[in-house]
Amino acid sequence: MENIIANRIKNARILKCLSQQNIADELGITKQMVSKYEKGEAVPTSSRFLKLSKLFGLKMDYFFSSFQIELGEINFRKKSTFSIRKQNSLKEEIKIRLENYIWIEETLSIDYSFKNIIENIKINSLDDIQKTVLKLRNDWNIGIDPIHNIIQLLEDKEIKVIELYNVDEKFDGLATYVNNKYPVIVVNGDFPVERKRFTLLHELGHLLLNLPDCETKEEEVFCNKFASEFLFPADIVIKEFGGKRRNITFPELINAQKKYGISIRAIIYRLVDTGILSKNKHISFYKRLNLNPSLKREVDNSRFETPEKSNRFEQLVYRALSQENISISKASSLLNERIANLKEISLL
């Protein structure tokens, strides 16, 4: 138990980007005593546990839980300015969220066996992405229709989605496996809905695509192509906008944005990628944006009306509570909700 408590205290400190001296100052003890806590050589008193709980913003049961997960490789390659301290803090937040997620599933005897149905399709060039996306869409029975809720689709396909709020704006998203079994996509929940949808599918590309050995920059290009093709398939782009054109009206772009949940910038890219617009038009589009701030704001407006929210974990907690698999205090801890509020809900 001492080792469990020691690891939890250290991980909570990393979560909050605090030093041992910061903890010592808050508790009114020496830095050496904090070090002993983290090495399992000493255990905080009850009063100090309460202070730690308040300082870290974590429930008391966090420090005593033996249920732990193993995160797969996490690479914050997109944002080189995302500091190591912030990366480690984010990893700990993800671990807490996923420990709770996996724990509640196991409590309900839910077991999934995810299958990557495109893992044997070797991607050698960007041209291979289109047929791979088409196979995935067909196997997932969505054809080339607009997708109204990406998160719901992913969760229906046994991919866990975690949204993080109030995190560093430099964080977009990531994909990994938990315990070498559960696929997980984490996304910045504060993003506009179109950006969130694109990021989710970009990370799905990292999760599923069998890419060649390549530099990080090239890997990002492959995954951007995957996300674009998944959101707005080439055949549909041509159907919506026709053949090669010299000009596109703004209302056409807005209508496509509302229908497919893809940003206007990404639509312009798709129009160039499918040959409907020339590369020169792409260049002139961005020149206009740089010279016209009001036009830039209008282009960047979010207009897709279907919210992208993950509520599966919350649903599982309420299910476990109603079936008496967990206590109301445990549900309160998992949902970070007051017990009184849950008592009112449980009466319905």
Rank of each mutant, 00 (worst) to 15 (best):
L208D: 04
S302P: 06
N166F: 09
Y112V: 05
P183M: 00
L335N: 05
F226E: 02
L126M: 05
L134A: 08
Y177L: 11
S263V: 01
D213R: 11
L211D: 09
S53P: 05
I104E: 03
G173R: 12
Q68L: 01
V272G: 08
F250E: 11
M33D: 01
G143Q: 02
L211M: 06
Y62L: 01
K170A: 10
I102K: 04
V317G: 06
E92K: 12
S109T: 08
K196R: 13
I262W: 06
E119M: 05
P307F: 03
R97L: 13
M33G: 01
N325S: 15
V161L: 04
K157E: 01
E215W: 15
R297D: 09
W103Y: 06
P146N: 06
T81R: 11
I23G: 08
Q20K: 13
S47I: 14
I267E: 00
N116M: 01
T30A: 04
A24Q: 06
Q32S: 07
T132Q: 06
N120I: 01
N247Y: 12
L277W: 07
S302N: 07
E2W: 05
F285I: 02
K259A: 14
E308N: 02
L321S: 10
D61P: 01
R8V: 08
Y112N: 12
N247R: 12
S278W: 04
N22W: 13
N188Q: 14
F171V: 13
F82E: 06
I268W: 00
I185F: 15
I14M: 11
I144H: 14
K309R: 09
G242E: 03
F76H: 07
K281H: 06
L126S: 02
I96Y: 05
E324W: 06
D168Y: 15
K95D: 09
I159K: 04
A12S: 15
F67G: 00
K196N: 13
N301R: 15
Y182M: 12
A331Q: 03
Y260T: 12
L55C: 07
I110R: 12
R13Q: 10
G261V: 12
S263A: 10
D235E: 00
Y286I: 10
S333G: 05
N124R: 15
Y286Q: 03
K16A: 05
I151K: 09
L334W: 01
I9V: 14
T216E: 14
E314F: 06
I84T: 13
F82T: 02
E93K: 15
L71M: 11
S278C: 05
N210L: 03
F56Q: 10
R137I: 00
F49G: 03
K79Y: 14
P293C: 07
